[in-house]
Nucleic acid binder design. Sequence first.
RNA 1: GCCCCCAUCGUCUAGGGGACUAGGACGUGGCCCUUUCAAGGCCAAAACCGGGGUUCGAAUCCCCGUGGGGGCACCA
Length: 491
Amino acid sequence: MNSPARVRFAPSPTGRLHIGGARTALYDYLLARQTEGAFVIRIEDTDRKRYVQGAEEEIYKALSWLGMEWNEGPDVGGPFAPYRQSERTDIYLEHAEQLVESGHAYYCFCTTERLATVRKEQQARKEAPRYDGLCRRLNSDEAHNRKHAGEAHVIRFKTPRQGKTTSVDEIRGEITVENATLDDYILLKSDGLPVYHLAAMVDDHLMEITHVLRTSEWLPTFPLHVLIYKAFGWEQPAWVHMSVLLNPSGKGKLSKRHGSGGAHAVYPLELKESGYVPEAVVNWLSLMGWSYDDRTEFFIMPDLIGKFSLAKLNPSPAAVNFSKLDHFNGLHIRSLKQEDLASRLVPRFRAADLEVTEDELRPITPLIQERIRTLDEAVEMSGFFFRNTVQPDPQQLIGKNMSPVESAAALSRSIDLIQGFERLAAESLELALRGLADDLDLKVGQLFGILRVAVTGQRVSPPLIETMEILGKELILQRLNRAAELLESPE
RNA sequence: GCCCCCAUCGUCUAGGGGACUAGGACGUGGCCCUUUCAAGGCCAAAACCGGGGUUCGAAUCCCCGUGGGGGCACCA
């Protein structure tokens, strides 16, 4: 095993955690657990304009639901607290000033208006929009004077104008760019708060982060980050730029809502509300840009912790495949213990206004476990167990290739037969019903089809015999009689 | 416009010069099983972006195209 990794997941609280972020967090978590290192959460809330109230709590909730616990973070504290960047502003200011003193950064007094004008001119000339370096040429005395006079300013990085910078990414190798193509990026804004480029580098260093996992959106500024590390004289962490997630169509970065026709949830907590189990979401996420071998795909968290490796990360962008999530959800539901499934089903039934208890659910879980792909499908399929009455479609009460009269006769004979039972026991009931079908010269499917609709109100249901056993003689007779009436006088 | 990254079935991927007649999974189609629906089993169709090199030999290495993605904010 490798030495303990300190890995951080650093979301900005600008909205709900989406599956892309969740996948990054997962890889962070796996690396930390695998090496028995630390998984730390840092909240990057230096942009006050985009701050969303409650977003931070949502992120915690989503990570918890997915089964990732963190060792350090704003809510649990830790040796490098505070973990919210808005509470570390002094640190960034100090470091920015340090860079100015060492000649790696400078004060810039340009207004946003001037910057916009410059940018516009450059674009008109079809040049890359970039800071024109006006304040870079200021002598330091003048700059200090203007600063002390209270003039609004930012601190910019003094990017070398010559030479090349080579950055090393764990999955992509060396990436070399001409420094001339880089900009003099702003490090510290005029409000005194840092931008990502400064804050993240300072924190990663101070918090002793060993592996920086982020998506490839950061590749263009990767050289800048390396330059900042070098300007401070710090040792770099291992950089890992993962692929981005694409829309199911493969066109464009994953956006809020997608899927053919219907909308697909892109937030883990939304997936939860749609009846997905966290095990499936984790399994699905883990395989978007990572693989273990050429055949193994079913994983639960402990497997993943053991098997994850950075070397198997795939650099190319991956389109999200929601039907595969459905598949994994079915797989994980089937692998659940019955009691576990039953307890997870309770809230889904309640959400559908069906008052059920886990005890009531337990006997039916074995009947539906291998038939459902989401927890909510259990409600669709077996809700009739908990409704007082069912509403069969009279048309559906007519057996396949049968007349209404024949169907009514089959129903009536079934009622007689069931009346003869003390208690409905699956084995004997099935034997009797099959005998009846034989007597009536019907195929088993014809008779069962009628009974299924009569008993469940549905054409698709859990296995009929077991269903009848659970429902019991009284209820069955009630529903069968009701069906017989419907067949005689359909409204 | 400029810079960067990527490129195997529709999708996610295995593949690290000969083991490739290119493997697995989802999805799709068919068959079997079957009281419906599933699940399960079996089978099928389905890919190395193009062109040049390098090499005895290239899906694998290099170059050029092309395509896709990302970035160019006092956002992250």
